[in-house]
Simulated assay, not measured.
Amino acid sequence: MHLIIALGVRIEQTRRRLAKLRQEGLVDRITLPRAGWTRVWFATPYGVEVAADGPELR
């Protein structure tokens, strides 16, 4: 996710942004133990609804 949305900033900033979005219920994550505990981030149903209402995705 960091490489997709924020390549030019430090990873800590991306982590803080994702944590805030998670706290707001817009995204969530799962952890894959067999993939070296990689975290996979995804939009929640509420996050999809909010994004769909934005003019950028119309």
Results as ranks from 00 to 15, higher is better:
residue 30 I to P: 00
residue 47 G to I: 03
residue 34 R to P: 01
residue 58 R to Y: 02
residue 16 R to M: 09
residue 9 V to M: 08
residue 1 M to H: 04
residue 47 G to F: 01
residue 27 V to R: 00
residue 24 E to S: 09
residue 27 V to M: 00
residue 37 W to C: 05
residue 45 P to V: 12
residue 43 A to I: 11
residue 27 V to D: 01
residue 40 V to W: 04
residue 35 A to K: 13
residue 3 L to C: 14
residue 11 I to A: 14
residue 21 L to G: 01
residue 41 W to C: 04
residue 47 G to K: 01
residue 12 E to A: 03
residue 46 Y to S: 08
residue 22 R to Q: 11
residue 3 L to Q: 13
residue 34 R to Y: 09
residue 48 V to S: 08
residue 56 E to G: 02
residue 32 L to D: 10
residue 53 D to N: 07
residue 45 P to E: 14
residue 55 P to T: 14
residue 57 L to Y: 15
residue 42 F to N: 08
residue 47 G to R: 01
residue 5 I to M: 07
residue 24 E to Y: 02
residue 43 A to Y: 08
residue 53 D to G: 09
residue 8 G to T: 07
residue 33 P to H: 02
residue 54 G to V: 14
residue 39 R to V: 10
residue 28 D to K: 05
residue 33 P to S: 03
residue 12 E to G: 07
residue 36 G to R: 08
residue 51 A to Q: 04
residue 27 V to N: 00
residue 40 V to H: 05
residue 13 Q to E: 06
residue 11 I to K: 15
residue 5 I to R: 04
residue 47 G to Q: 00
residue 10 R to M: 10
residue 34 R to V: 07
residue 37 W to M: 10
residue 18 L to W: 01
residue 6 A to F: 05
residue 17 R to N: 02
residue 15 R to G: 00
residue 41 W to S: 00
residue 27 V to F: 04
residue 48 V to I: 12
residue 42 F to G: 06
residue 49 E to S: 10
residue 39 R to N: 12
residue 24 E to F: 01
residue 24 E to I: 04
residue 23 Q to T: 14
residue 29 R to N: 08
residue 48 V to Y: 03
residue 17 R to Y: 01
residue 53 D to L: 09
residue 30 I to A: 09
residue 36 G to C: 08
residue 1 M to T: 11
residue 21 L to I: 02
residue 26 L to N: 06
residue 30 I to V: 15
residue 39 R to F: 08
residue 57 L to I: 13
residue 16 R to N: 08
residue 3 L to E: 15
residue 30 I to F: 04
residue 13 Q to M: 07
residue 4 I to C: 08
residue 51 A to I: 13
residue 55 P to L: 14
residue 29 R to Y: 12
residue 55 P to Q: 13
residue 22 R to S: 12
residue 33 P to N: 02
residue 2 H to V: 01
residue 43 A to D: 07
residue 10 R to Y: 11
residue 30 I to E: 10
residue 10 R to N: 13
residue 51 A to E: 03
residue 57 L to Q: 11
residue 24 E to N: 03
residue 31 T to E: 02
residue 36 G to P: 02
residue 49 E to L: 09
residue 30 I to Y: 07
residue 55 P to A: 14
residue 22 R to L: 06
residue 27 V to P: 00
residue 28 D to I: 05
residue 41 W to E: 05
residue 34 R to L: 12
residue 40 V to T: 05
residue 33 P to Y: 03
residue 1 M to C: 07
residue 45 P to W: 11
residue 44 T to K: 01
residue 43 A to H: 05
residue 25 G to K: 00
residue 1 M to W: 05
residue 9 V to T: 09
residue 42 F to P: 00
residue 4 I to S: 14
residue 17 R to Q: 06
residue 9 V to N: 07
residue 19 A to Q: 11
residue 2 H to D: 05
residue 2 H to E: 10
residue 34 R to N: 06
residue 4 I to Q: 15
residue 24 E to L: 11
